[in-house]
């Protein structure tokens, strides 16, 4: 692998190449999320959630997609069911989120055990941090659910997953990672790119659909 002198130097200081790659890829993924918000109009749960889920998917590799999507989906599903059950108890916000988190944790444990029992060892060998990341997405989900309803929350969750999948496709593409390590300075380009995105006042792609009836007027 041909590293750039910068990369050579950093790795020479005992920083693992993997760590360096991830740190350099984070701005790229964050820029992707801001592009999706400003130009495409896909909101997701802010910028943190899609970025972190992207890396969680990466951490699930080699079965990133299969397990990542399954776990993300089950977290959201369990979050919805729990809310439905808890509704009648009229709990305050934080206790309600805490209960939801507990239920999801137990369910995850159950899923891992189930995976082990059916000899899907890939699932059980997953490291704990990506799993925790997925679980904490629940708080975002419950917050939106309370404010805007389940429908809006599910849509935002799906959008988050969509952005994460695009991000995952990008950062799990070996040629791209190699390029970043060979030319680490290119990551700095995300700054001017974000300045442009931050000044972008054009219609978002989704707004063309939202306002189609107005656009069709003579």
């Amino acid at each position: 692998m041909d590293y750039s002198p910068i990369t050579e130097f950093i790795v020479g200081q005992n920083v693992p190449a993997q760590t360096m790659a991830l740190l350099l890829l984070l701005p790229v993924v964050a820029t992707l999320a801001s592009f999706f918000r400003q130009v495409v109009g896909i909101k997701a749960f802010g910028i943190y959630a899609p970025s972190i889920v992207t890396f969680a998917l990466l951490a699930f590799d080699p079965n990133g997609l299969k397990y990542g999507i399954a776990i993300f989906g089950s977290v959201i599903l369990i979050g919805m069911v729990t809310r439905y059950v808890l509704r009648r108890f009229r709990l305050l916000y934080l206790p309600r989120v805490a209960i939801t988190l507990s239920v999801i944790s137990f369910s995850m444990l159950g899923i891992l055990v189930l995976g082990g029992a059916t000899h899907r060892t890939g699932l059980a060998s997953v490291s704990i941090f990506p799993l925790l990341i997925m679980i904490t997405i629940t708080e975002k989900f419950v917050a939106v659910q309370l404010e805007k309803g389940t429908r809006a929350a599910v849509i935002l969750a799906a959008e988050t997953l969509a952005i994460s999948l695009v991000g995952y496709a990008l950062i799990s593409w070996p040629a791209f990672v190699r390029f970043i390590l060979a030319h680490p300075w290119t990551v700095l380009l995300t700054i001017p790119l974000n300045v442009v995105l931050g000044k972008w006042t054009g219609l978002r792609l989704t707004e063309y659909f939202r306002f189609l009836t107005v656009l069709r007027q003579k």
Binding site: Q38, G41, W200, T201, G202, L203, R204, E207, Y208, F211, V214, L215, R216, Q217
Partner: peptide, 12 residues
């Protein structure tokens, strides 16, 4: 469509 889109106010 394009001409009308210039009249529209988007979120950005």
């Amino acid at each position: 469509l394009l001409r009308n889109s210039r009249e529209l106010l988007g979120m950005n």
